[in-house]
Design a protein around this nucleic acid. Structure first.
Lengths: 158, 158
DNA sequence: GGCTATTCGTTGCAAGTGAAACGATTCTCA
DNA sequence: TGAGAATCGTTTCACTTGCAACGAATAGCC
């Protein structure tokens, strides 16, 4: 393999990292500067906003964050009055997390701005190109998610 | 804007973040598990490997890391014997950073594995699709890099 | 030439992050 | 039923990160 040809700025993982970081940083101004939310908090709020009560574990499985991050994000959002937390009566290990009216209000202020940001980023792309991008990202995610090391799996950590 | 339609898992910044994070984590096994390098260290090494002596600032401008991260990465790589650092004789503020023989050796072991990883990720993509991906990412990066807030700029921080 | 402003790289420090440990609760199965 | 295993959410702790401040060195300007 010709490692003399290696050029970091052409290297896919690097390019994706840089692009994602820049985009996230710009987007974070939307929910961070105005509403004081962190990225984990924004993700949790966005996921819980239009859904039923759910546990920390369910959120973790859906927003690509580890367990402690979700736990902390939920605590902060609860303190801010955007989420309500209660112990599940059927299973006292579980916590039922739900968006509050105030939380929904905040979400409905942020979401349009977030969508506008996305639209601005994609504004110079045709419908066909957007479809291409969607497909390519989906396939890449699929490849990366292929579990190479299989286990019978006890408890999913984090 | 219909914020009820907002779905995090379809949201471009989120998708890119998740994809980039997963890919970087998998890649980091290549340089991390075997050679004990962190991501900033890997980026610095990869960038310096086939280049002339350069300063911290030049590296920073090329690898999308902030000043302290580059400084720390260089220090660690120097301690590990992969880089050599000396004070520039023309300008004593500057540092001249250069890869050592050992550093080049390590790089030539990692780079092929990194390229193989990239090739594996892209293995199911046709040449045309790779070109599409390349173009789309380049254009997205261009859009995100457009400076919205212009300043005369004093010192570039970090 | 000397004074100020700027640039360089490093370091301090506070905030964020993730792996592991923990107590509490429930499940499993003999 | 009861003991051990598994799961849940939180917390602890070590590590990383990014901003700001800093001392050192140079550039700019009168």
């Amino acid at each position: 393999m010709a490692s003399d040809d290696f050029n970091l700025s052409d290297f896919l993982p690097y390019r994706l990292s840089v692009l994602a970081a820049r985009m996230s940083k710009k987007l974070s101004k939307v929910y961070g500067d105005t509403y004081g939310l962190s990225t984990p908090e924004w993700r949790v709020l966005a996921h819980v906003a239009h859904r039923e009560k759910m546990s920390v574990r369910e959120i973790r499985d859906s927003v690509s964050l580890d367990k402690p991050s979700v736990s902390r994000a939920v605590s902060k959002l609860e303190k801010a009055g955007l989420l309500a937390k209660s112990i599940c009566s059927r299973d006292h290990r579980l916590v039922e997390i739900e968006v509050t009216e105030k939380g929904l209000e905040v979400f409905h202020q942020i979401a349009p701005e977030a969508l506008a940001f996305e639209a601005a980023v994609l504004s110079s792309f045709s419908a066909k190109e957007r479809q291409q991008l969607d497909d390519l990202l989906t396939r890449l995610q699929g490849v990366v998610d292929e579990q190479t090391g299989e286990v019978c799996a006890v408890d999913q950590p984090n």
